[in-house]
Amino acid sequence: MKLFAPIEHPRDIRCKLGLNQQAFWSAIGVTQSGGSRYEAGRNMPKPTRELLRLVHIEQIDLAKIKHEDLAIVAYLAESHPDLYKSLRSAVKGQQVKTEGEQAAV
């Protein structure tokens, strides 16, 4: 999913994950009633959309990310773009492999 791309159907994402509105929306700091409005079609602010994407689509545990980690990634991408791209490709390949193994179980 592209950064800042609209999320057309947050309810579909929530249902696919098997979460109720309270659990789904509170994970990104949105009230159940606010989330209900987004599911009904109200425009979602970009920060909320990105939190939804990171937490529920990318499955990133935001509690484990430190500012220093983000600084390292930014430094690596800027200073050593070839190494960054190589590492990124390796991680994506590992994720695909892991997903394939989980599907086989």
Rank of each mutant, 00 (worst) to 15 (best):
L54I: 08
I65H: 01
R53D: 04
A63S: 15
Q94K: 11
E68Y: 02
L52R: 00
V96F: 10
G34Q: 13
K2R: 07
P81G: 07
E58Q: 13
G34K: 06
P45H: 02
K85W: 01
A5P: 00
S86W: 08
A23N: 15
K2W: 06
G18T: 09
P47Y: 04
L83M: 11
E101N: 09
G29M: 08
K97G: 00
A103N: 05
A27R: 08
P47R: 04
I60F: 09
F4T: 03
A40Y: 02
G18W: 07
R37I: 06
I60D: 09
L62T: 03
I72Q: 08
L54V: 02
G100H: 10
L87D: 00
A40C: 05
L52G: 00
G41S: 06
Q21E: 15
P47F: 05
W25M: 05
S89Y: 00
Y38N: 00
Q21L: 13
R88Y: 00
V96G: 05
F24M: 06
D12Q: 12
A5K: 09
Y38E: 01
K66I: 07
D61K: 04
Q95R: 09
L51H: 06
T98Q: 12
L3Q: 06
G100P: 01
L76C: 05
Q95G: 04
G34L: 09
L76A: 12
S86T: 11
H80W: 08
K85T: 03
K92A: 06
Q22N: 15
E101S: 08
V30N: 01
A5N: 03
D82Q: 14
V91I: 05
R49M: 13
V73T: 11
I28G: 04
